[in-house]
Computed example of a mutant assay.
Amino acid sequence: MKSALKRLGWSQAELGRRLGVHVNSVTNWANEAPPVYVVEYLRVCELARQILERPSHDNDRA
């Protein structure tokens, strides 16, 4: 989880804000195991960032 937050440029407080949970919950997850939904949320966010950061190829559109 910590590495995903670093790649996204988010703090634990930012993740808590985005998920609507207290930062203490996020801190607990960082020290233990985060719930599956948090792992999946971070994975989706990382994939979305990768897609959005790809160079656009306007000529590739049909």
Rank of each mutant, 00 (worst) to 15 (best):
K6Q: 15
L15M: 04
D58T: 09
P55N: 15
V26G: 02
A30I: 08
A30W: 03
S11F: 00
N24W: 04
K6A: 11
N24Q: 11
A62V: 14
V23T: 12
P34T: 06
W29I: 00
V38I: 06
C45T: 12
V36W: 09
S25Y: 04
R17W: 07
Y37C: 09
L42G: 05
K2E: 05
R7C: 04
K6T: 14
L15E: 00
R7T: 06
A4W: 09
G20K: 08
H22D: 10
G16C: 01
V21M: 01
V44T: 14
S25W: 01
S11H: 04
D58R: 15
W29N: 00
M1K: 07
G16W: 03
L42E: 04
M1C: 05
W10H: 02
K6E: 07
Y41L: 07
H22G: 06
H22P: 03
N28C: 07
S25R: 05
V26Q: 01
T27R: 01
R61A: 11
D58I: 11
K2Q: 09
L19K: 04
Q50A: 15
V36R: 13
E32S: 14
V26T: 02
Y41W: 08
L52T: 13
S3I: 08
S11N: 04
H57K: 11
P35N: 04
L5R: 07
L8K: 03
R18M: 08
N24S: 11
M1Q: 05
V38R: 01
V21E: 00
K2D: 07
E14G: 05
W29T: 00
M1P: 03
K6L: 10
D60K: 12
V38P: 00
A33K: 11
S25D: 02
E14S: 06
W29H: 00
D58M: 12
E40V: 12
N24I: 04
S25I: 03
E14L: 09
E46W: 06
I51P: 07
M1R: 06
I51T: 11
V38W: 00
L15A: 03
W29L: 00
